[in-house]
Amino acid sequence: MKKFLALLLALCVVFSMTACADDANSDETSSPSPTESADPAPTQNDEEQNAEVMSYEEYVAAELDSQVVIEAYVQAKQSWWEDQATVYAQDEDGAYFLYNMTCSEEDYELLTPGTCIRVTGYKSEWSGEVEIIDATFEIVEGDSYIAPALDATELLGTDSLIDYQNQFVEFKGLTVEAAGKDEAGNDVAFLYNWDGSGSDGDDLYFNVSYNGQTYTFTVESYLCDNTTEVYSAVESLEIGQVIDAQGFLYWYEGVNPHITSVTVVG
């Protein structure tokens, strides 16, 4: 009798633990804040889902707000939050910024650099950045591809720079300029947030000049956080240094590269 009771109680404990776990989950799901861009609107029918994959040229020609289907290779992952991933992707012809693409946490782990994905979404533009939003994706088995950095130094300041939007690029021989001033009024080489209102861990902003023009570069903290080499490298920059930099050619009201590496060369 005692053994039976002990066994029964043990079973109860196991079931109760399961109940605890379920309860914890329900607490999570009761969190009332789905991500801002979650779009419940029904949008894609079967015909659209089966649309043909576009070439980059066709993608460029596609109207804003039209549905697009592309295949490209993951180059970098910027963020994942509540089943939405933001990713830089590229093929031999051009690049894509995939903003808040539907993606489980497990699938996000599979999006390693070089992985080929087929993406179905809508071409959109936000503050000058052309991107694919409200997208879904599937992994395409086969080749992988890592884009070499395109030397875009001589394109700085030209109208054709935007043709390379979102591509992995490099700039050589840039001079570090003052980004702002510290509390004592001294010039500084970088700022936490665009105006220095942030702190360690926030985006880094720094200015570089080339051929007499100054450009603002950013270390996007979701793409490269404060544990990365580039974050430390920018925090160590000094005004007047000459640098080479690599990153993705992001756009925000003008060119605003998201820098992933910086090398001081002079």
Partner: peptide
């Protein structure tokens, strides 16, 4: 947001 997107998307 959804209505606005839908109209823009035809």
């Amino acid at each position: 947001e959804s209505v606005t997107k839908a109209v823009r998307r035809g």
